[in-house]
Design a protein around this nucleic acid. Structure first.
Lengths: 119, 119
DNA sequence: CTGCATCCCTGCGGATACTG
DNA sequence: CAGTATCCGCAGGGATGCAG
């Protein structure tokens, strides 16, 4: 949407494609609209998890997708990855403060979604 | 996530795939994570639009995708489609009350997204 | 004007096998 | 244990053409 965002500010007569694709709000939904990001984030909101823990708690996720999901969250600065150089290696994932700050707004959406559930 | 939602309630030891996919919160993000739904919704939050108006205001969208996007929003009950049987036909799209009720939560996400923009 | 039908291309995501 | 590499199918989405 606008270079800032479309949800808050008023919209131009014609929404430029480039700006829309650069819109941070759009970006958020595209990120969390993928298959595994949301569950992963929610599990991490409980507590720190090891890689294997996550894989066992999320039914149906493959190693590949868990890795990709975590890497994406990490590069977004929402998740912190900590490697313990033991043998065998142990890697812990936890939410960063920005990651936690998302939980509030997320709960808003959740409340809305749940509120219109069946009827 | 859980049959209700994962964001609010506590998570099971193992998140069942079926329940996660049925989670309304997940569903919301998947819906709005697609390419055109968010802009469309935002334009409609301003006022009622005709099909052609929308297509001209959203740079880069194809007829096909605008149709699909609107149909999806309609079947979600977020958008109302009104056909005026004139020649040539005229079709108007507007937000339903449920559609409007989404704007608040959406603004929360927007604020969060904008808040962490560049730095 | 407002669509639907068709073709095609790309990227998401699953399955499997291999490494430090 | 925690990944990476490879292959591959499928759905999202663009371009174009036709229709009521």
């Amino acid at each position: 949407m606008s270079g800032r965002n479309t949800v808050v500010s008023s919209l131009p007569a014609r929404v430029p494609l480039a700006e829309y694709e650069a819109c941070p709000v759009t970006e958020v939904f595209r990120r969390f609209g993928d298959k595994w990001t949301l569950v992963t984030l929610m599990l991490l909101s409980e507590r720190t998890h090891r890689f294997n823990e996550l894989q066992h708690r999320i039914e149906g996720i493959s190693q590949r997708m868990l890795t990709r999901t975590l890497r994406a969250l990490e590069s977004d600065g929402l998740v912190q990855r900590t490697v313990h150089p033991t043998v065998p290696p142990s890697v812990e994932y936890s939410l960063t403060p920005p990651g936690r700050s998302l939980l509030g707004p997320l709960a808003e959406i959740a409340a809305w979604a749940v509120g219109r559930e069946p009827g």
